[in-house]
Amino acid sequence: MLRQIEAAAAQRFRNSAHPEVARMSPTELAALEDLASGEGILVATDSRDSLLGFALYAPMAGDLYLGELNVLPEAAGRRIGARLIEAVVEVAVQRGCRWLLLTTFRQVPWNAPYYRRLGFEEVPEDERSAALTAEMARQAARGLPPESRVAMRRHAGAGTQSS
């Protein structure tokens, strides 16, 4: 079901500046299983326990990296994504991380502008860890244009506090 949610959420990109995202394969099942066994997935459900969205996260150089955030299109606009992010921030706090990190599209309205409203800021290039730089290079190799991407961070436990 997580792969179906990811594929459905990616369809928002069909009419964006990055339609290639809608054609990308969802996360491999084996990778999802690895994350689930390592507590790297948080899910959002409705009152009947039907899945509405999920967040994938993993440790990254002493911080926590939000690798995916997906919500079913029909559940959009109900702050499900924002609540998932808050839950991942709480995981970061519990693990003693300073930052919750992510990479996203700079100009897509439901990407960087959305994350800014939730307290994220751009990570200056000279402050990126080797792991974050490598993640951005991996995404470029997958076909995501590096000039359109941005690395962002949110201080764990302190909302919009900057470095």
Rank of each mutant, 00 (worst) to 15 (best):
L56Y: 07
V21R: 05
A76T: 14
T45E: 15
P146V: 00
Y115G: 00
R142Q: 13
L84R: 04
A22T: 11
G67I: 00
V88R: 04
E28G: 15
E122W: 04
F105W: 10
V91I: 11
G119L: 06
D46K: 00
R138Y: 13
L32N: 03
L144I: 05
A55F: 03
R116Q: 10
A76H: 15
M152Q: 00
V91F: 10
E86T: 11
R78C: 08
S148H: 13
L100W: 06
A112N: 01
D63P: 01
R78K: 15
R128D: 11
I85K: 02
G81L: 05
L32S: 04
D126T: 10
P109V: 06
L101Q: 10
V43K: 04
V93A: 09
E28T: 04
Q94C: 15
P145G: 00
N111Q: 09
A30D: 14
E86F: 07
L35H: 11
H155N: 11
L100Q: 03
A75Y: 08
A44R: 01
E74D: 14
A55R: 13
A156E: 03
D46A: 07
N70Q: 15
V21F: 06
L64G: 07
W110E: 08
G119K: 00
R138N: 13
A158Y: 05
G77W: 10
R48P: 05
G143R: 06
P109N: 03
R79H: 13
A44D: 06
E39D: 15
A61I: 06
A36T: 05
R23Y: 03
E74M: 02
Q139A: 05
R153N: 00
L64C: 06
T45A: 15
F105L: 11
A140M: 05
A92S: 12
L100T: 06
L32M: 08
A158N: 13
Y115W: 11
R78P: 08
S148Q: 14
G40W: 01
V21C: 10
I85H: 02
A140L: 05
A140Q: 06
L52G: 13
P146Q: 07
L69A: 01
E122N: 04
A75T: 04
L64P: 07
R128I: 09
A30L: 13
L69S: 04
G53I: 09
R98D: 12
E125L: 14
A82H: 12
A55P: 02
R106S: 07
L51Y: 06
V93N: 07
R128H: 10
A137W: 11
G157F: 02
A55V: 11
Q94P: 03
P145K: 09
R154H: 04
L66S: 06
E28K: 15
V21H: 02
